[in-house]
Simulated scan of single mutants.
Amino acid sequence: MRVFGVTGWKNSGKTGLMERLVAEICGRGLTVSTLKHAHHTFDVDHPGKDSHRHRVAGASQVILSSRNRWALMSELRGADEPSLETLLGKLDPVDLVLIEGYKRESHDKIEAHRAATGQPLIAPGDPTIVAVASDSAPDAGVPVLHLDDTGAIADFILERVGL
C-alpha cells in the first residue's frame, strides 16, 4: 500500500483537503483509505448504546456490525498508543492510504496552509513535507499548489507515490 500524508496547523484546511482528495482520487477509479490522528480523547460510540455498554463493562475490543458497515473499537486501557505502522497493518489493501496528522512520522506529506491562521509554514524545517497546498503563495522551498486546486494536488500525490 502506498501512503501519503496531509499535515498542517489547526484550521489550515487539512480535513477539507482530505475529503476532497478522497473524492477526487476515488473518482479516478482508485481505492483509498484514510487514517487520522487525534490529539485528544474521542469516542465513536454513544453512552447507552449496547456497544458502549460492552466497552464500559471492560471489553478490550468491540465489533459493531450491520449490513451497511462494521467498526472495530479497541480500548487501550492504559497501553501505549499503537504506532502508525501497526495501524496501517490493520487496514485492508487499497491503492492509497491518506494520513491526516502524524507530523513526526517519516512518510511524505503535503502541508495545508491558510494565510489567515497566521501560522508559519512547517515545510522549511521538515524534509518529509514535499509540497504545500496554500491559499497564498508562500516561499516554502518546495512546490506550492493552490489549496483549492484538488485536481492538481491529487495529480502531484499520485505521481509522487507512483500511481
Rank of each mutant, 00 (worst) to 15 (best):
I25K: 03
E111Y: 01
Q61R: 12
L76F: 14
R114T: 03
A154N: 04
R104N: 14
L145K: 00
E159T: 07
P127E: 12
A115P: 08
I122M: 08
H107W: 04
G162D: 08
S106V: 08
V56S: 12
E111K: 00
D155E: 04
R114H: 02
S66P: 03
A116C: 08
H107I: 07
V161D: 06
A137G: 14
V94S: 10
I99E: 01
M1K: 01
A38P: 14
L21C: 05
V44K: 13
W9N: 08
F42C: 07
R77M: 13
G13S: 05
R20Q: 14
R104A: 12
T7M: 00
S65R: 15
V6E: 06
V130N: 00
T15L: 00
L21G: 09
L76P: 02
G58S: 12
E111G: 00
G89E: 03
I122T: 07
L163N: 04
E19P: 12
Y102R: 11
A23H: 09
A154H: 01
F156E: 04
T128W: 01
A23V: 15
V6W: 02
G48D: 11
A115K: 12
T15F: 03
L163W: 12
A131W: 00
R160L: 03
K10R: 15
K10Q: 15
D149T: 01
A71T: 14
A71E: 11
V3D: 00
A140D: 07
K36V: 05
L98C: 04
E105V: 01
E19Y: 13
L91I: 11
G58R: 09
C26M: 13
E100D: 04
I63P: 10
L64R: 12
D92P: 13
V97T: 12
W9P: 10
V3F: 01
A140S: 02
F156Y: 09
D108L: 08
E105H: 06
R67E: 15
S33D: 13
Q119H: 15
L84W: 02
G118V: 12
G16F: 06
L17R: 06
T41L: 14
S66R: 05
Y102S: 05
K90F: 10
C26Q: 14
D126S: 01
G162E: 09
H113Q: 05
P82Q: 04
D108H: 08
P138M: 11
G141C: 09
S83C: 05
H39N: 15
L35R: 10
E105K: 07
A23K: 06
S12W: 02
E85S: 14
R77C: 09
Q61H: 12
K36Y: 08
E81I: 07
V6S: 07
L145D: 03
D155I: 07
F156L: 01
A116K: 08
L72I: 04
H40K: 11
G151V: 12
S134R: 03
E24W: 04
